[in-house]
Design a protein around this nucleic acid. Structure first.
Length: 418
RNA sequence: CGGGCUGUAGCGCAGCUUGGAAGCGCACUGGCUUUGGGUGCCAGGGGUCGCGGGUUCAAAUCCCGCCAGCCCGACCA
């Protein structure tokens, strides 16, 4: 694999395929997310969904196809998105009277229904979220970072006034996104507001969390927008106030996508491959049984028993029992795939009642006792999670400019991955 | 859309200059061997050589046209 230092972009491109996260989709810029990659998404999803619900939001689902006229209701919104829309013009063997847009984001269709569902101040705030796929015809796709179709959640809320809407905007940014990034993905993100030129089309204010990638460039890893009354005016989201007067609601929207996976790869990965934070790793511990012939059965049985005990302790464990592959091959394979901890279990270990533990970031291998393995590994995983965050924080601090240079920073973001 | 590059087995590539039986490595299948850092050997399977046309006794190779993909930019609200 190309080393990061030689060509970071090539390193990334090769890694996502070699680690079996993705394959190329048939249409340009699309991606097939393979099981190992999709598991990463599921783990992000589970964590985010929990936080979204804990903060009072409810999940709903709106249609993939949006009438073209909806997009045109908000002038800046349509202008911003027009170049990257996929449009359905024919269906059922006929040309459609009104073309349908494959959603690039759902403000418009959700706005339409919020207008229908909101009539009183008692209906506010309305706190919705949807898990969905969206399509944006980007000129230069990159796996996870900017694909034609991607998966995300989009929160959409409506509030009585600016203060409440801004509270929501910051709640999504800080309590939901920044915490997910830091606590789950071990990404020491910076929260900030985008410049007017970088604002979401139709938004009054746009905030993001920005991660620091190992090539020293920033990645926008989550966005939260305060829309003011722009969409409320375009879609007639109005409510009767306590005094009976009609008032436009203030809306927000916020999203985090499969791009987050790209962020994790570029925040922690090294020349040997992925480095996954334990809380996000599909397999936190992989057991490589060593030995064949007479010993094989015994070793495999011991590995399975150990895996069972670890699973019982809540540790995601995998036994690599592929018989045709050598241990050395498996070691490299699981390092490439970013598994935090590896246990080597052979006849020598069994005799001694131990297993050899190796950490993904290297250092000396260490024998640990089989009896105490679940507790020991749980501790090791916690320590590994913390170490990754510290390491990434140190790297970020070396590469981040001061707030005085914020303009330059956002400029760097704009010309970087974001 | 501009600049560069590439289309030959699942993947990575050689062959093209100078036309003459479609190859190599990895992967895959079967067998044996081997297993504490990317095992070794033997035998196999797999191809509209991107597409269309032309030249020729003969085209992966030469000529014309088209298409697709990748990389670097522009775009990324």
């Amino acid at each position: 694999m190309t080393p990061q230092s030689e060509d970071f972009s090539a390193w990334y491109n090769e890694l996502v395929f070699k680690a079996e996260l993705v394959d190329r989709g048939p249409a340009k810029g699309t991606m097939v997310i393979r099981p190992y990659g999709y598991r990463l998404w599921e783990l992000i999803q589970a964590d985010l969904d929990r936080r979204i619900k804990e903060t009072g939001h409810q999940n709903a689902y709106f249609p993939l196809l949006i009438p073209q006229s909806y997009l045109q209701r908000e002038a800046e919104h349509v202008e911003g998105f027009a170049p990257e829309l996929a449009v359905v013009t024919h269906a059922g063997g006929k040309q459609l009277e009104e073309p349908l847009i494959v959603r690039p984001t759902s403000e418009t269709v959700i706005g339409e229904f919020m207008a229908k569902w909101i009539s009183s101040h008692r209906d506010l705030p309305m706190l919705l979220n949807q898990w969905a796929n969206v399509v944006r015809w980007e000129l230069r796709p990159r796996m996870f970072l900017r694909t034609t179709e991607f998966l995300w959640q989009e929160g959409h809320t409506a509030h009585a006034d600016e203060a409440d809407a801004m509270r929501e905007t910051m709640l999504a940014l800080d309590t939901i996104y920044a915490r997910t990034a830091r606590e789950l993905a071990a990404m020491p993100v910076i929260e900030g507001e985008k410049t007017p030129g970088e604002r979401f089309a139709g938004a009054a204010r746009t905030f993001t969390i920005e991660g620091m990638m190992r090539d020293g460039r920033a990645l926008q890893a989550g966005t939260s927008h305060y829309m003011g009354t722009n969409f409320a005016r375009a879609f007639n989201i109005q409510y009767a106030g306590e005094d009976g007067s009609l008032i436009h609601a203030h809306t927000t929207s916020w999203g985090m996508s499969t791009r987050m996976i790209g962020g994790v790869i570029m925040t922690h990965g090294d020349d040997k491959g992925l480095v996954l934070p334990p809380r996000l790793a599909p397999y936190q511990v992989v057991i490589v049984p060593i030995g064949r012939g007479d010993q094989a059965g015994e070793v495999l049985a011991a590995a399975a028993a150990l895996a069972q005990r670890l699973a019982g302790a809540g540790i995601r464990t995998h036994v690599d029992d592929r018989p045709q592959l050598s241990p050395g091959f498996k070691f490299n394979d699981w390092e490439l795939r970013g598994v935090p901890l590896r246990l080597e279990l052979g006849p020598r270990d069994l005799a001694a009642g131990t297993a050899v533990m190796a950490r993904r970031l290297g250092g000396p291998k260490e024998p640990i006792s089989l009896d105490g393995a679940p507790a020991r590994l749980a501790d090791e995983l916690e320590a590994f999670q913390a170490l990754l965050f510290e390491r990434a924080t140190a790297f970020r601090d070396e590469h981040t400019v001061t707030t005085d240079e914020w303009d330059d920073f956002t400029k760097a973001v704009a010309t970087g991955w974001a």
